[in-house]
Design a protein around this nucleic acid. Structure first.
Length: 970
RNA sequence: GCCCCCGUGGCGGAACCGGCAGACGCACUCGACUCAAAAUCGAGCGCCGCGAGGCGUGAGGGUUCGAGUCCCUCCGGGGGCACCA
């Protein structure tokens, strides 16, 4: 292994230069591959370690995972590997602490960019995607990541797609039983739909009333085949429905709510999005709203991500209240403030609300002119307003937020608490998609209602007391209830919370309302009109009924089509229709199958699944990417993910021990994956209740970019600091303006890892990226600072190897007490830092130790070996090389991380700080066991203390032995 | 508008429980080595001051023997949500 380097610095053949680093790194990468060094053994099955053994029962499993990459054609920049290096360091550290570490990297390879790239180049997306994966794998291999190569896969692999489709069928084949008791004692879980049909058939469960063809009092036996099917289909967790969906004509596809930005545009491509009613696949994620919220308390995630998920799910506790409408109908509202019911002075329904399908023929008495919008009849006014609202794009709605428009509908509703007649308006500030699409408006208690009341000259009644001189507007805070009493109920004098309970109880008694919970979360729109995604394992019969394909028909593979791109339209053409590319291959689209009742012709579903599908369950696939018998082997799942596995305590929900990735997936991937995992949990496929137990959001590496006078980006690498330039920087002699932000080709500030490998080597890049700052912080890339990391490794190298001869220079003598003290202090501190993922400060302490060894004539072997093992997680190549040169046969990967000897952690003297009035005036070397009295005397006798006291009396002396004394003058 | 996070040398950052502010690295300055340069090694490096010393963690106030750390107000930066009843 230790042949002479071929490339050397002029006169120092064994100096740790970029050339030598490269040689060492490539050699060890090959060696690791040859030996299967990073093969992670499972407790059973075909995956063993590099020496053919199953997992050591004494080793605790530790599962570390990265958010897997999307293999784009652009290649990596130095910002990309940050998280991968961090997980690698943690994984290597845990391995050296004796854990069985699972760490691998797959590829998230379906999706729009690959499809668009394929369209541009005229190549099949599979061809371009696989080529990109190969490039990325090469770039990542050069980093020396300790991944088990046997566990890599891509979401586009047919045997992965097969299981993605299988999971879809599980979800399709399940319904949510709100009453079923779970293992954890809670209520509600998914069950197979076959059991639902049995319960309907036996009469154990009443038939739903909201399905077409189910008449009141009907039994299962009364229903025809088509109705039975509709009943069951209406309860599935994956279901087809005609619902308003987000249609982006410019993209040619529909999108999930999570993929639409707040201003009503597509997250990808920034195209306008329109609401269209289309028949699409949906996933009943709303059934899990409560559990998705509650279980956030049981996982170790950044509070920021938890709060984003909580907010996205938007659980809100309040009441439903029913108002009779004159003319016989009824309108139900949702409110979080039932205590303000006496302050309701009008009502508002969304423009899409069914109450508006019929309106009174003429304006009732008492109609204000401003309410009618100048229309002659309610029908005219409502029709006009509905049309106006429907034509509004989401962007316009967004811009109009705050400005209140609306029109009176002619309807009058009766306030159940006081019989007051309330005019019913329609206005687009009330959304059909939330609550019941109707509100009771309380301008005295709600700012939006107040603004509407101002615009439409409606009365304001306050129901919460306010101090003298309080403004006229809505009182949204807590307070004492006023103006709220009728013959049967008196809320006056109560707090808001008390009044809520009281009025809800009263409403419930009279059947006019009840306490309820509502959510902001909507079901997940799950079909896309794209080519490059998983096809649905669904066919349709001649009546257009969906039929699940049997497992034996999986995977349903993508057909070749003449053109991969979805049909796109003018981005503003709201009336266009989605047209999926898969529909272009009729040979594939129509298929003859025998699904139990003889060969018949079926039509396949031409949609594909969204990009998120593959990332919902890849954490299960790493356990055994070749598993064929089950989505995941239960034994492996319990071992790597199960509740109470490895480092987790027995009451844990289970899940990946450390999941690292950017915060941008806070409500997309991370919510969807939790949902799928919970369905699989309910159906008995996994014991863990959550996929990711601990989540860590790494920051981003950013960079400076520079523009010239015209605002055009200039190559950042060629910009120099220049005092003569008014901006402080110049490019080609001209002033350059500096900005700070993303790394990107268009910004001309990309630094690729390959450049760093060439100039410094992978270990230096790793040390630099890990030492730049705390992992969760974004920080600027600075190429000129990388040399600091290289100097550290060079000094480490020189402490072991003679630069001229290549011979070992370590001393075989025992280290001095001073060295041992520093060594053990360093070991203790580095362990603590590593456990807390403070890799930056761990490196700082390793540098201190290394610098100390540098000052010695010869570094003692015992200290050097400990240092090399501690450096190994961060700089694995140089560590293995030095370890080998120090005479070890097995890789340092298998060495144990050093443990601190407590005997060397106690100092025999401590520096005690002597303060006067909190300011340091002196220091004293004292024994750690010094008494308070001794310290007090010592401090008062100190010259610096006396000088600072300047003759003043001493009021008191605070002693914190042995570190600090504070003398407080009078 | 609401919610959350963050403001420390020229720069990235450290200070974990309220107890020596500025670990470690970059840049910079000086010195050694060298014909010279690079590399390397050594010393210095918050600000003001010749000095003793004074002042310093966005600003102001508070709590405390003692505050970068806790509390209040404000300023600045970043992020999330945004007519969600």
């Amino acid at each position: 292994m230790s042949q002479a380097p071929t490339t050397t610095s002029d006169d120092v053949p064994f100096r740790y230069t970029a050339a030598l680093a490269e040689q060492i790194e490539l050699r060890w990468q090959d060696e690791w591959e040859r030996r299967g060094t990073y093969f992670t053994p499972n407790p059973s099955g075909h995956l063993t370690d590099g020496e053919g053994r199953h997992a050591d029962p004494a080793a605790r499993p530790f599962y570390v995972m990265d958010m897997f990459p999307y293999p784009s054609g652009a290649g990596l920049h130095v910002g990309h590997p940050l998280g991968y290096i961090a997980t690698d360091v943690v994984g290597r550290y845990r391995r050296m602490c004796g854990d069985n570490v699972l760490h691998a990297l797959a590829f998230d390879a379906f999706g729009l960019p690959a499809e668009q790239y394929a369209v541009q180049t005229g190549q099949h997306p599979r061809t371009t995607t696989e080529a990109n994966i190969a490039i990325m794998q090469r770039q990542l291999r050069r980093l020396g990541l300790a991944h088990d190569p046997r566990r890599s896969f891509a979401t586009i692999d047919p045997d992965y797609v097969r299981w993605t489709q299988w999971i879809f069928l599980q979800i399709y084949g399940a319904w949510y039983d709100e009453d079923a008791v779970r293992a954890d004692g809670g209520r509600g879980r998914a069950r197979p739909v076959a059991e639902l049909a049995e319960e309907y058939a036996s009469g154990a469960r009443p038939l739903p009333a909201d399905v077409e063809g189910v008449t009141p009092g009907a039994t299962w036996a009364d229903l025809d085949e088509a109705t039975r099917r509709r009943v069951v289909d209406s309860r599935r967790l994956a279901y087809l429905s005609h619902t308003p969906v987000n249609w982006a004509p410019g993209l040619g596809t529909v999108l999930a709510n999570e993929e639409v930005t707040a201003d009503g545009r597509s997250e990808r491509g920034n195209f306008p999005v329109f609401q269209r009613s289309l028949r699409q696949w949906n996933m009943r994620i709303t059934a899990y709203a409560d559990r998705l919220t509650d279980d956030l308390d049981r996982i170790d995630w950044p509070e920021k991500v938890k709060s984003m998920q909580r907010h996205w799910i938007g659980r809100s506790t309040g009441a439903r209240v029913r108002f009779a409408v004159q003319g016989g109908s009824e309108v139900e509202v949702f409110t979080t403030r039932p205590d303000t019911l006496f302050g309701a002075t009008f009502m508002v329904v969304a423009p899409e609300h069914p109450l508006l399908d019929e309106v009174p023929a003429a304006w009732p008495d008492g109609t204000h002119d401003v309410w009618t919008g100048g229309h002659a009849s309610p029908a005219d006014a409502v029709t006009a307003y509905r049309a106006e609202a429907a034509a509004k794009t989401a962007v316009e709605r967004q811009q109009d937020a705050g400005r209140k428009t609306g029109v009176f509908t002619g309807h009058l509703a009766v306030n159940p608490v006081n019989g007051a007649l309330l005019p019913v308006f329609t206005a687009d500030y009330v959304l059909m998609g939330y609550g019941t699409g109707a509100i009771m408006a309380v301008p005295g208690g709600d700012e939006r209602d107040f603004a509407f009341a101002q615009a439409f000259e409606l009365p304001v009644v306050h129901t919460v007391d306010a101090p003298e001189g309080a403004p006229e507007g809505a009182r949204t805070g807590d307070g004492v209830v006023i103006n709220s009493a009728n013959d049967e109920i008196d809320l006056n004098g109560l707090t808001v919370a008390e009044a809520k309970d009281r009025v809800v109880a009263w409403l419930a008694e009279r059947g006019a309302g009840e306490k309820t919970v509502t959510y902001r979360l909507r079901d997940w729109l799950f079909s896309r009109q794209r080519y490059w995604g998983e096809p649905f394992p669904i066919v349709y019969d001649e009546d257009d009924n969906p039929i699940a394909l049997p497992e034996s028909a999986l995977p349903v593979e993508l057909p070749d089509v003449p053109d991969f791109s979805p049909r796109t339209y003018d981005p503003d053409d709201a009336d266009s229709e989605p047209e999926p590319p898969l529909g272009r291959n009729e040979d594939w689209l129509y298929v003859e199958l025998d699904l139990g009742d003889g060969p018949r012709r079926y039509r396949r579903d031409a949609n594909t699944m969204p990009n998120w599908a593959g990332s919902c369950w890849y954490h299960l696939r790493y356990l055994d990417p070749r598993a064929e018998d089950a989505v995941v082997d239960p034994e492996l799942e319990q071992y790597w993910l199960g509740p109470g596995h490895g480092h987790q305590d027995a009451s844990s929900v289970g899940g990946v021990d450390l999941y690292v990735g950017g915060v941008e997936h806070a409500v997309l991937h991370l919510l969807y994956a939790r949902f799928w995992h919970k369905v699989l949990h309910d159906l008995g496929h996994v014991r863990s209740a959550e996929p990711f137990h601990t989540l860590f959001n790494q920051g981003y590496i950013q960079a400076y970019a520079y523009t010239d006078e015209r605002g055009v980006y200039v190559p950042a690498a060629e910009v120099v600091e220049d005092e003569a330039s008014p901006t402080g920087f110049s490019y080609a002699g001209e002033p350059a303006h500096r900005e700070y932000g993303k790394i990107g080709k268009s910004l001309k500030n990309v630094v690729s890892p390959d450049e760093m490998y060439d100039a410094y080597g992978a270990d230096t890049l790793r040390v630099y990226e890990m030492s730049m700052g705390p992992l969760d912080l974004s920080r600027p890339w600075e190429t000129r600072a990388v040399v600091g990391a290289q100097r550290f490794l060079q000094r480490l190298w020189r402490n072991v190897v003679d630069e001229q001869t290549g011979e070992l220079v370590v001393s075989e003598e025992a280290p001095s007490t001073e060295t041992l003290r520093l060594l053990h202090r360093t070991v203790a501190d580095v362990r603590e830092d590593m456990e807390a993922m403070r890799i930056n400060t761990a490196i700082a302490k390793l540098i201190v130790l290394n610098n100390h060894l540098t000052t010695l004539e010869r570094a003692p072997r015992a200290a050097v070996e400990a240092l090399v093992t501690m450096v190994a997680p961060v700089a694995p190549h140089i560590a293995d090389e030095l370890w080998h040169r120090l005479g070890h046969e097995r890789s340092v990967v298998h060495a144990r991380f050093p443990e601190a000897d407590p005997a060397y952690l106690v100092e025999d003297t401590v520096t005690c700080v002597l303060q006067v009035a909190g300011k340091v005036r002196g220091r004293a070397e004292v024994s750690p066991s010094v008494t308070e009295d001794e310290l007090r005397a010592l401090a008062l006798a100190d010259a610096g203390v006396q000088r600072a006291l300047d003759g003043r009396d001493v009021r008191t002396v605070i002693v914190r032995a042995p570190k600090l004394v504070n003398v407080v003058p009078a």
